[in-house]
Amino acid sequence: MGRYVARRLLQAVPLLFIISVILFVLMQSIGDPLATMSGRRPTRSADRERLKRQLGLDQPVLMQYVYWLVGNDWTSIDLDGDGVRETRGERKGVLRGDLGRSLKKRQPVLDLIGERLPNTLLLMGTYEMVVLVGAVALGIYSAVRQYSIFDHAVTGVSFVLYSMPIFFIALLSMYLLAVKPKQWGLPYFPTVGMFEPEAGKTVPQVIWHMVLPVLSLSLISLAGYSRYMRSSMLEVLSQDYIRTAKSKGLERRYVLFAHALKNASLPIVTLIGLDLPTLLGGAIVTERIFGWPGMGRLFFDSVSDADTPVVMAILMMVSVAVVVFQILTDVIYAWLDPRIRYE
């Protein structure tokens, strides 16, 4: 197993390299970061030249990539445009943990991400937990009570929710749980941000503010996940070994959780493994609607500003996470299903 993981990690290196090259080339067409740098007015051409030089955008794409990857502190760059390379480069490159600076905010990308990532992890982690617990419970219950009124109701509601776009659910939840209760003079959920400025960033405040975004995100995913769980559970429940377990006189509940759930969770593990890394990127639409200061908003804003270092960093982070979670999924899969062995 250790060797398998090591080999997979080694294989990931060229893969990530190729991903980074492709992304970097694509970044060239994201837009002109200099165009909006002087605010509302178009940037003057003299300023453009200077900024381009200072930001290293005057270099060929290949050189820009090399600087991004390994940094430029081993060479000198021409900052004043006199054709002489007299200034020592300061960038260390991604490989040494330097993700560069945001073109727009001029802060290190790492700081920007460090500021946003915890918020996103909090939001998405909570959402994933809600979805998992809810989907497993709903899925099992629907499977055990197949074709009952409850099962049909869950199926119906799931299809409706699953077909709804997130922005609609988000706005609907705002309308029904914030706007209307407020009109009626009832307590209502906050719709924007992580906390009330006057109350400060306290735990109850953040939980309170998380309700609506988590609810909106969960409703959609819950619909899909619980369907998977239901069908997976139904398939397992019709297997011969479940009949065997029952014939042994084991209790229903025990058969369900000790014999069926482990088998039924296998396809779900794959699903989660594919889902979790994308959570790092945040929920772009939901974070924007609810004003949640997370990665999704950072990504959206950075793309709008053509802030390539930030966009690049977020995309690479998600890529690495995808690779890591794939390996992790395989490991967990082997742990759950003893028939699977990696050589």
């Binding site: 011969d240 009949r243 014939s247 042994k248 006189g249 000790a258 088998n263």
Partner: peptide
């Protein structure tokens, strides 16, 4: 009654044992 008084063995031993539980577990739980 099941398993204790009246036990049943089945046709296909490939599918009648739980693939993710050890043989020991499947005997001892009974």
């Amino acid at each position: 009654v099941r398993g204790k008084e009246i036990a049943m063995i089945f046709q296909d031993p490939m599918t009648s044992l739980n693939p993710v539980l050890t043989v020991g577990k499947q005997i001892t739980e009974m």
